Computed example of a mutant assay.
Amino acid sequence: MNNSVLYLLTVLIWGSTWIAINYQLGDVAHEASIAYRFGLAAAVLFIYCWLKKLPLTMNKQQHLSLILFGMALFGFNYFLLYQAQENINSALACIGFSTLLLFNIINARIWYKTPITSQVVLGGSLGLIGIVILFWPEVKSLSLTDATLYGLILCLIGTLSASMGNMISIRNQKAKMPVVQSNAWGMLYGTIFMIFMVIVQGKTFTFEWTTPYISSLLFLSIFGSVIAFGCYLSLMTKIGPHKTSYANILFPAVAVAISTVVEGFAWNNYTIFGFLAIMVGNFVVLAKPRAAKKAIEQENSLAKSKLTNEKVIAS
Rank of each mutant, 00 (worst) to 15 (best):
V226G: 01
T211H: 00
F103E: 00
A20N: 11
R109N: 07
S245D: 08
Y150C: 09
F273P: 07
G165T: 03
N269E: 08
A72D: 03
I95D: 10
Q119K: 07
K176H: 10
Y23V: 11
N248W: 06
H63K: 06
A93Q: 11
I110E: 05
S216I: 03
S234A: 10
I67A: 11
S305A: 14
T271P: 08
I129C: 09
N3G: 13
E86P: 04
W50V: 14
A41P: 10
F229H: 05
E297I: 13
A287V: 13
L73R: 00
K113G: 05
F207W: 00
S315C: 12
T99A: 02
L235C: 06
A277K: 00
A291T: 03
Y7D: 11
L12M: 13
L64S: 13
V198R: 04
E31I: 03
S259T: 11
M1I: 10
A287I: 07
G151V: 13
S163M: 12
K293A: 09
K140H: 13
Y112N: 06
H30N: 01
W136F: 15
L144E: 04
T159E: 04
L156E: 02
N183M: 12
K60I: 03
I214M: 02
L80N: 06
S245N: 14
L128F: 14
L302K: 08
V200T: 09
F223L: 14
S182N: 13
G240T: 14
E208V: 06
K311H: 14
G202N: 08
L160D: 06
N172S: 12
E138F: 10
Q181N: 07
H30I: 11
T114L: 09
L220F: 06
S163V: 02
S305M: 10
Y7F: 15
S98E: 03
T204W: 08
F74P: 09
L233N: 11
T99E: 04
Y7H: 08
G127R: 00
L160M: 13
G165N: 09
Q119L: 12
H30F: 14
Y78E: 05
W18I: 12
Y112E: 10
I258F: 09
M236A: 08
V44M: 03
A29D: 15
I133Y: 05
L152V: 10
A84P: 13
F229D: 06
V120A: 08
Q201Y: 05
S216L: 05
T159A: 04
F283N: 00
R171P: 07
I67W: 15
M197H: 04
Q173C: 08
K203S: 14
L149I: 15
F38E: 01
V280M: 04
T308G: 12
V44Q: 00
T260D: 06
I227E: 07
G230V: 05
A303Q: 12
F283K: 03
F251S: 03
K243T: 07
A175T: 12
F223I: 04
I296N: 07
A91D: 10
W111Q: 02
C94P: 03
Y189A: 03
C155S: 12
I227F: 13
W267A: 01
I278V: 13
K52I: 04
A108H: 05
I47V: 15
T206N: 11
A253I: 07
V261W: 13
V179D: 09
M279D: 01
I157Q: 08
A91I: 06
I47H: 05
S33Q: 07
T211M: 10
I105V: 15
M279N: 02
Y246D: 10
G130T: 04
A291P: 03
